[in-house]
């Protein structure tokens, strides 16, 4: 039961991060390999605000979201959009955006290392809470609840609002969306920025119960990518379920076999997905 609860709570935070990446890859069609660094930046902001000003990470969320939105928007407009324009083929864009976002990722790690080379350790809501016959740290529970709230709001917005519909339309087919009068450029930039903001929020939340450091972003990028692929690109429901599965399996492997094997577990899942369901858990595309 311990494993199930803490696995689900961890999965909740992963789901939020994967949602951010999904917006970027599914809508703007840029595989953002600097996604994990945006997460860590969110975590660094939460840490810094808490240590320097005693600001609760829950308040930092409100500041981080717009900053990450603007930062991601600028990153798309200044660095990635030119690549989209220049690419002659989709394959070319894929390679260019992979290399460029790697560059951005390393650059951000470099910047963060110079800001803070040690672990971002701080203690927030580290009190035990009893839940369904087991004890969890309050920070994990709070983080998962807020992640669920943000994720739920995003889901409703995407499915119930007009701009949300435009975003989904671009995700399905940029060409067709353009034909019905949607400004594909603007929607893509917006989705990319929104994805960045959501990821940074995930970083704030995760930093309350996982000790991060400047270079741990790449692990989160990996996990988010595995979740997005497992859930099916652009499929939010699939991503949530995939995130919960990953959270559960990682927690189970860490507590039953060895904490050093969580990445191995993630890879085992990834491999199974690639071999048996490369179109995602609920995808029905033709192989």
């Amino acid at each position: 039961m311990d494993v199930v609860i803490s696995g689900l709570l961890l999965g909740g935070a992963y789901a939020l991060v994967a949602m951010g990446l999904n917006l970027q890859y599914g809508v703007a069609r840029i595989m953002n390999l600097a996604n994990g660094e945006i997460l860590i930046l969110g975590g660094l902001a939460a840490f810094w605000a808490f240590v320097s000003f005693g600001l609760s990470p829950l308040l930092t969320l409100v500041i981080v979201a717009p900053l990450a939105f603007i930062g991601s928007w600028a990153m798309y407009k200044l660095l990635l959009r030119p690549l989209v324009r220049r690419a002659k083929t989709r394959g070319q864009l894929e390679v260019d955006s992979i290399l460029a976002t790697f560059g951005i990722s390393f650059f951000l790690v470099g910047v963060m290392v110079s800001l803070r080379a040690e672990y971002f350790t701080y203690s927030f809501l580290a009190t035990p809470v009893h839940l369904l016959g087991t004890t969890v740290a309050a920070n994990r529970l709070v983080a998962a609840l807020i992640a669920a709230a943000i994720g739920g709001a995003l889901y409703l917005w995407l499915n119930r609002s007009r701009p949300g519909m435009a975003v989904r339309a671009v995700a399905v087919s940029p060409e067709a969306a353009g034909l019905v009068g949607i400004n594909v450029d603007r929607v893509s930039a917006f989705a990319f920025a929104l994805g960045g903001a959501v990821t940074a929020l995930g970083g704030c939340l995760i930093s309350t119960f996982v000790t991060l450091d400047a270079s741990s972003g790449v692990l989160f990028t990996m996990k988010a990518l595995i979740i997005v692929i497992m859930g099916g690109v652009g499929d939010i429901r699939g991503a949530i379920i995939a995130a919960l599965i990953l959270g559960l399996v990682e927690t189970a492997v860490a507590s039953i076999i060895d904490p050093g094997l969580t990445l191995v577990a993630a890879y085992a899942i990834f491999l199974a997905v690639l071999l048996f369901r490369p179109q995602g858990l609920f995808g029905q595309g033709n192989a």
Binding site: D96, A100, G103, F106, F107, G110, V113
Partner: peptide
């Protein structure tokens, strides 16, 4: 301490200036 930064700049240099 600047190694990571150099890696990042090298990638960006390649993509944007000498593809």
């Amino acid at each position: 301490s600047a190694t990571t930064m150099v890696l990042g700049l090298a990638f960006l240099l390649i993509v944007y200036l000498i593809p």
